[in-house]
Every structure is written in structure tokens, then in C-alpha cells.
Simulated assay, not measured.
Amino acid sequence: MKLGFCGLGLMGAAMVRRLLAAGHEVKVWNRSAAKAQPLAALGAQVVAHPREAAQDVDGVLVCLFDSKAVEAVVFGPEGVAQASGLKWLADHSSIDPEATRLMAARLAEANGADWIDAPVSGGVPGVEAGTLAIMAGGNEAHIPQASLAMRAYAGNITHMGPSGTGQATKLCNQTLVAAAVVALAEAIGFAERNGIDVRKLAPALAGGWADSKPLQIFAPRMIDPSPSSIGALSTMLKDVDTVIANARQSGAPMPVTASVQQMLRLADALGLAQAELSSVVSVVLPRQRDAFLRQVDG
């Protein structure tokens, strides 16, 4: 397929590598052009504007930080909405469901393209393994074609319903993951204070009811911080903030998630917003803070 891709952060760049490896032609755009150069070496065509990425392609995919960034890339000067003949846009960003519905209507009016909200779960390891879970919302007409592209990095693609339902499902995902990671941080702090060798915790719980991907992935990284990040704490805090805002609007009681939000805010206040999500353990194990701050500086 001929595809456009806008947004080359940790996830976006990994997605483009998988698309190229699958044999797709990919035009790429990123706000800081330097991030596109390694992909150019793999065969991607680097373009100067989002509109160029969306012109003369089967579809365009975007993976950006928040609603503001998505709106700027799609509807700003030289944005995706100015491309003619575009059939669909798949948005892998994690943003507010209502913002998605409004932008979907706006794109349809601008150039007739379908907006597929397609947030993902699985992180960079999931992209690289081709096992991401994608929760799709929007008009069903172009989801099969978009799925042909997304299969390069996804193992599970589910159409959840009309526009915005993909994003709402991702918020459910983030609620569960954030709560699991914060609970894990507290468990590690508890274990250390009770004489447990914390490196044995995840192996000891493997196969039991407490076992999970967050346990097996994040516990080792909380204990021995990695020089490289698999996802910033600020990204999860942004998503949990969106969960709480939507819960308030819909009347959904979420007392546990509200506590998780404050735990993430404490880590943010410690200067760890750009460190990996596992840095939340620093709230209960202050000795880990310097190691995670080095991750930010690095």
C-alpha cells in the first residue's frame, strides 16, 4: 500500500519501521525533521508538510501526543485536511473521545475522509513484535483497508463502534494499566521494607493471580532503571487526566483511578514527567529517583 505517516516518536518510528519491512511505501512527516532521517535510510520518503504525507496515498496514519497536536497536524496550515482524494485517516494517538468525534466530523466536511480512532496498547515492544492491540472506532467502511496496514504491527484489531469508541476503550485500558503499575510500585516498596529480595518478586508471582504483563515488564525496570525509556510517565498522566475528566462528565465513580492520578502527580512533582512510567516507584522508594532522573538527562 501507499501510506502517509505523521508523528515519529518512540511508537510512530517503530510503526513506520514495521510498515516498511512489510513492503509498504511510506511517506513520513515529523515536526523535528531529524527524527525522520533514520527512516529515510530504510526507504521512507520524507516530506515537508502533513498535507504531502496525505496526498496520493491509500490512507494516512498519525501518532501524536495529545488532541492539540493532532488538531494542528490535521487542520493546521499545510495539514492533512488539505489533501485531496484522501479516503481515511487512522489516529493512533490517545486523545479525548469527544475531541475525536468533533475532529472526525470536521475532516469529513473538509475533504470527505473517514476518521478512524485507533489507539493502541502494547508499547514499543508490542510494535516490534507485531502484537499491538488496536481499539478502532469510526465508520466501518475503511477499517478493513486500514487494518491491512495496521497488521504490520498489530495482532488484535477490534472495531468497537462509532467515532470515539476506540478512544473510550483505550481509556479503559489506561485505567487498568495505570492502576496495575502504581499498585506494583507500592508492592515493591512494601517488599523492600519487609526484607524481601525485590528481584525475586516478579518470578515468585509468575503464574499466580497477581501475574500480569505490567508485573513482568515493569518490576525489573523499577528495580534496575534502564537507560532508555519505553514510555514517559507524562503520557500516562495525560491519559489518566482524560479518564478523570470523562468520568466527571459521565458520572462514573472512579475512586481508585483518582488515587492513581495523584500518585502520578507526585512523581511528576519530583521531576519525573519525562522519565519512564516505572519511575513512579520513586514516590515510595526515593533512592530510585536519581537513577530515573539520569534517564531523563540521557
Rank of each mutant, 00 (worst) to 15 (best):
A14Q: 13
A14C: 11
V16C: 13
H24T: 04
E25F: 12
E25K: 14
V26D: 06
N30Y: 12
R31S: 10
P38K: 01
V60D: 02
C63N: 09
L64R: 01
L64C: 09
F65E: 06
K68F: 14
V70C: 07
F75D: 06
G76P: 05
G85C: 11
R101P: 05
R101L: 09
R101M: 12
L102V: 15
G112Q: 13
G122E: 05
P125W: 12
A129R: 07
H142V: 00
Q145L: 11
T158I: 13
M160I: 13
S163T: 06
Q167M: 12
A168N: 03
L171C: 06
C172T: 00
N173S: 02
T175V: 10
A179D: 06
V182W: 07
A185T: 08
A187P: 07
E192K: 15
G195R: 12
R199V: 06
L201P: 01
L201W: 07
A202P: 01
L205A: 06
A210R: 03
K213V: 01
K213C: 00
L215G: 00
Q216W: 06
R221E: 08
P227D: 07
G231H: 10
L233K: 03
T242P: 02
V260E: 00
Q261C: 09
A273H: 03
E276V: 04
E276R: 10
V283I: 08
R289F: 11
V296Q: 06
G298W: 03
G298H: 10
